[in-house]
Simulated scan of single mutants.
Amino acid sequence: MPTLTRLIILLAVIAACIYGLMLALVKTVSPVTSEITIRVPANKMLQQPHDPAPVGPAPVPSPYTDGEPEAEDAE
């Protein structure tokens, strides 16, 4: 049991060190911000949106499992 306790304590210390390094990195490094301009060609702006095919109701599943018609339909 002492070996398991040592392993858990060692993993906790390693996790705490990693957490502390990440916290120090967040506090010391600041991001560089800059303005970005993206040119969009006029032909891209004039295109009409593509209309997908109209969606109808879902097809009703057939009550027949073997694909053969009932006796009434066969007459």
Rank of each mutant, 00 (worst) to 15 (best):
K44N: 10
S34C: 06
S30F: 07
R6S: 13
L23E: 08
D73N: 04
L23P: 00
V13T: 03
A58T: 14
R39S: 06
P57C: 00
C17F: 05
L46C: 00
V60Q: 13
V13G: 02
P31E: 11
I14H: 01
I38K: 04
I38S: 03
P49H: 06
D73L: 08
N43A: 06
L46Y: 03
S34N: 08
T5A: 13
L21V: 10
R39Y: 05
I8A: 09
A71R: 12
L11V: 02
E35W: 01
V60I: 15
L21Q: 10
I38M: 03
I9Y: 02
P2S: 14
D51G: 00
L7Q: 10
G20Y: 04
S62I: 00
A24N: 04
L10D: 06
A58D: 12
E70H: 01
V29M: 13
L4Y: 07
V32Q: 14
G67K: 05
I14K: 03
P61E: 13
I9K: 12
T5E: 11
L7V: 09
A71S: 09
D51R: 15
E70F: 03
I14S: 06
V13Y: 00
S34I: 03
V40Q: 08
D73S: 05
L11A: 05
V60N: 07
P59A: 08
P57I: 06
Q48I: 02
S34Y: 10
E35V: 12
H50E: 12
A42R: 09
I18R: 04
T28A: 12
K27G: 08
I8G: 02
K27E: 11
I9M: 12
A24R: 07
V60H: 07
L25D: 11
P63A: 08
A74D: 11
V32S: 12
T37I: 14
I8C: 03
G67A: 04
D51L: 15
A74G: 00
S30H: 14
E75W: 01
M22D: 11
I38C: 00
Y64G: 02
P41C: 00
I36M: 12
T3K: 14
I36F: 05
V40C: 02
P63D: 11
P49F: 09
A15Q: 07
I38D: 00
G67L: 05
A24F: 08
R39D: 10
A74P: 00
A15W: 05
A53H: 02
V40Y: 08
P63Y: 04
T33P: 00
M22L: 15
T3A: 15
P69F: 08
L25Y: 10
L23H: 02
P54Y: 04
P59K: 04
N43K: 07
T5V: 09
V32Y: 10
P57R: 13
P61K: 15
P54F: 03
V29K: 14
V40I: 15
S30I: 01
T28F: 05
L7N: 09
R39W: 01
D51S: 13
P54T: 07
V13A: 07
R6P: 01
T37V: 15
V29P: 01
P31C: 06
L10V: 03
R6L: 14
L10W: 02
T3I: 13
K44T: 04
K44V: 07
L46K: 12
L46D: 09
A42S: 14
A16P: 01
V13I: 12
A53N: 06
A74V: 14
